[in-house]
Computed example of a mutant assay.
Amino acid sequence: MSKITDFLDKISDAAPTPIGFGATRGEKHPGLGLVVSLAKPNQDQIKKMSTVCDGFIFKAPPSKSVSDKLTNPWILDGAIPTENLKTLLEIGCDSICCDLTSSATTIAEDNLGVFLKLNINIDWQQLTIINTLPVDGYIIEFNDISNQINLDQLSKIGLITHGTDKYCLLTVSSAPAAKELEALRKIGVIGIIMNGDNSDFSDVKQLKDELLAMPSPNHKKKDNPHLKSSGSVFELEG
């Protein structure tokens, strides 16, 4: 298992913080994972962003001098020849990211995680077929967030997340608001991918702070004493 999927597992399995005397408080996990994408990673960018993100996506492999100092797991985005997979492992690559035009040999290396890029407008039938591929997760490409996410966009994201048991990460061009993050988590998004080349460090840090501040998802639904269920129909009590 890759380090990134291992981290996403911890978010998915996150339990409420124990309370009471003698309770053991475990490590605080964010409500969603945060991955920063960088086109041409350099040491200064990585050093700063690594303090607030859980992983990176690089468009090109980092140099050996840069990769040796990386402490965050990283994903390489793009078509990768089979003969280069071993080299990627040697310089610390955790996972690869590809689309449906990539060679079938992309999934040949068991020691590398694989994330498949999907367009937000994919239809249900195609998703059902794609689900047969042995990949670790999907990266939903959604870069047209302007002001706020509407229900139409949310439903398209939900069609993918509810149609699979794989990890689903969402690419965004700007940081979603706190309530939008909660809505995305409720429909099954496990992580956010933010463009580090077009974002200020302060914006990425603020997003990380909001993810850490998200309440536990394991809360009980409050009962409404004024409603009672009758089969599949809810009726008001008199």
Rank of each mutant, 00 (worst) to 15 (best):
M1R: 12
S2Y: 06
D6N: 15
A14N: 13
T17P: 02
T17K: 08
G26T: 06
G26K: 05
K28R: 12
L32Y: 01
V35R: 02
V36W: 01
A39Q: 14
N42Q: 01
Q43D: 09
Q43Y: 04
Q45K: 05
C53K: 04
F58S: 02
K69W: 02
L70F: 01
T71C: 13
T71S: 10
P73R: 03
T82N: 14
L88C: 10
L88H: 05
L89S: 12
L89H: 11
E90A: 15
I91Q: 06
I91R: 06
S95K: 00
C97Q: 07
D99K: 03
D99T: 06
A104G: 10
A104M: 11
A104W: 00
T105S: 09
I107R: 07
E109C: 11
N111H: 09
L112V: 05
L112G: 05
L118R: 03
L118Y: 00
I129H: 08
N131S: 08
T132W: 07
T132V: 14
G137E: 00
Y138G: 05
I145D: 05
N147D: 11
L159Q: 09
L169Y: 00
L169T: 00
L169C: 03
S173W: 05
S174L: 13
A175T: 09
A175C: 11
E180T: 04
R185S: 08
K186T: 06
K186P: 03
K186N: 09
I192C: 01
I193R: 10
M194L: 10
V204P: 04
K221V: 06
K222I: 14
N224I: 14
H226D: 15
S230V: 10
G231Q: 07
G231L: 08
E237R: 14
